[in-house]
């Protein structure tokens, strides 16, 4: 049964751009200065928990570290803020310059934080000290999306030119680079086994690529009628969720058969981000329409 679970209509005062779900904690951020956390388990599922209000401009990316200790948020103002979820205070505030941190994510089991700027600069910070530890050299510019492989070994980035670059996180070596679309790629996500990569682009297509092949393209997933804003594979490796901008859709795909399973039409504006529950039975979506929606995706 695929059905809408709960809809929080005005979860934020302005559009929501980013959502993460780790165990009991759900974090959302967006256009407004506020970052919120929500309860991720019953019986208080999706009730507001904490509020962090420090960013001046919108929050474009956020992540929760695997130990649920820190929440990292990155905004248009270039400030990366690490929040201590136990004390609800700012642990570190790192200034990376305007648009210096477009996307971010925890790596090394939460010990480090990787960020990529709009200009394509990849930087790695220590979570504990907030100091920059190293950077990965990259030549591609105008970056729109970033993904970290579930096994924590690889980092993929893509942008306006439709080119995907894959790096080995430990060595910082570029291991693969290919043209996945001839349109900007805004959505990027590894398969649960870290072997394949999903891309979603402005050409309304989701494509599946084999990262270990010289001709990576495997298949197209067609069903969206506008540019794709997010792709997210479930942790059990069975489903792929995707969301669109103008078509406002949230689509659920069966990865094995590559078929569209279900389409939700809940949002009234761009649906920017999606997050799976760790047991792959629930999904969250956030949108410019200020709403946070949960879906129940259990097979009967």
């Amino acid at each position: 049964m695929y059905e809408i679970g709960k809809k929080i209509s005005n979860a934020h005062d302005d559009g929501i751009w980013s959502v993460k779900w780790s165990g009991d904690i759900i974090a959302t951020g967006g256009m407004s200065s506020k970052v919120k956390t929500w309860n991720g388990t019953q019986p208080q599922f999706l009730t507001e928990s904490k509020l962090f209000d420090r960013h001046v401009l919108g929050v474009t990316s956020l992540d929760i570290d695997p130990t649920d200790k820190y929440l990292a948020t990155g905004g248009l103002d270039g400030h990366i803020r690490l929040w201590d979820l136990n004390t609800n205070t700012v642990h570190k505030d790192i200034d990376s310059g305007p648009l210096g941190c477009w996307k971010l994510g925890f790596i090394s089991k939460g010990a480090e934080l990787v960020t990529v700027s709009e200009a394509g600069i990849i930087t790695i910070y220590s979570t504990e000290t907030g100091e920059k530890t190293r950077s990965i050299s990259n030549t591609s510019k105008q970056i729109l999306s970033m993904a970290i492989s579930p096994n924590g070994e690889q980092l993929a980035i893509a942008g306006t030119e439709g080119i995907v670059s894959v790096f080995e996180l430990e060595s910082g070596k570029k291991v693969n680079s290919f043209k996945a679309h001839s349109a900007p790629i805004r959505a990027l996500c590894f398969s649960s086994d870290s072997k394949n990569l999903f891309t979603g682009a402005d050409d309304s297509q989701i494509r599946l690529h084999d990262l270990h092949s010289s001709t990576p393209f495997i298949a197209s997933f067609l069903g969206h009628s506008s540019n794709i804003l997010c792709v997210s594979a479930s942790k059990d490796g069975k489903k792929l969720a995707s969301s669109g901008s103008i078509d406002r859709k949230v689509c659920i795909w069966d990865i094995k058969s590559r078929k569209l399973d279900y389409t939700f039409n809940v949002h009234a504006d761009n649906c920017w981000d999606l997050a799976w529950s760790s047991d792959s039975t629930k999904l969250l979506s956030v949108s410019d329409d200020c709403s946070l929606v949960s879906y129940s995706l259990t097979k009967q």
């Binding site: 751009w17 256009m31 919108g58 474009t60 477009w102 709009e118 105008q142 942008g159 306006t160």
Partner: peptide, 10 residues
């Protein structure tokens, strides 16, 4: 402008 920037940060 923030909305627009989110669409095309470059």
């Amino acid at each position: 402008l923030k909305k627009a920037l989110h669409h095309s940060p470059s």
